[in-house]
Amino acid sequence: MSQPPQRRRVVVVTSLIVVVLVTAMVTGLSLGPMNIPFGDIVGNVLSHLGLGHSVVSPTQSLVIWQIRAPRIVLGSLVGAMLATAGATYQGVFRNPLADPYLLGVAAGAGLGATIAIVDLGGTTGIPTWTPWLAFAGAMLAVATTWTIGGRGRFASSTTLILAGVAVAALCTSAQTYLQQSSTVSIARVYIWLLGSLSGASWSSVTLLLPYVIVCAGVCVASARALDVLSVGDVEARALGLPVTQVRFVVIVASSFGTAAVVSVAGLIGFVGIIVPHMVRLAVGTSYRRVLPISLLGGAAFLVVADTVARVVMSPSELPLGVVTALVGAPVFVIILNSRRRFVS
């Protein structure tokens, strides 16, 4: 059956996000220590598509395509993945506060990635198989959180989040110990940890891209299953959903995606909770709408946040995690106040 008012809203919200995303991308290409006029950027992009001639100098072109563009693309991937993973965790745990950070997944991934960088890494950059160690850490963390706080008679949103906080604290302390014990890599780990896209290059984009395509793809494809799960495990099972298998696949996908993001961009909090929450306010709670729109919205949000992080203290940079937390913390408080709307 058609839903005309809802559908119109979805179209409006989606187009709005696309406009914000494109504008933020072009603005991001234009702003920086070397300011390149907006119009020149558009002309340059169009010329790459075979339309018209570009007026930018070779140096400007290098800045645009080798420094700023990969960073913007990486930012979109990171934001899309974090927002999708957040929405997915919220569905699979039936908990509006679930998020890669609050569940300890990101901290676990951080621990795994630190092990990779400190103990096994070379002297520069991030080893290509870092995502796998980060993934191992993430899975261990989410499994521990779920075992402690997500099941049994006393399980509730609160116990799950408290367990996540405890697991995150444990992972962070182990991670800090490792980081401090190696003087060679301490600076590298520290900068990475704050969450930043400053190390972006086309190679980090190609490292992350396959993980994001597969993991976010699985999450978005599970939207209908997550809608069924909203009536709880017992009824979902009675409706014919293989709950255990679905939960496993979806948690693995969102944790792996988060781990991959953490290993290239460090810890960037709150995206997984703010974006899906905003999207729900705009288009309702069905995951068939929330997931794909969060994916787009996450990309837009992170590109905007990263541009802000680059520009406010220019030429030096604010860590991206600081910007997302600045916006995220107040939104989180709002969600806490209105959570009765989501938890029945």
Partner: peptide, 11 residues
């Protein structure tokens, strides 16, 4: 039965 919030009757 668990009644989900924000889901339309037809859904």
């Amino acid at each position: 039965p668990v009644v989900p919030v924000g889901m339309s009757v037809v859904d």
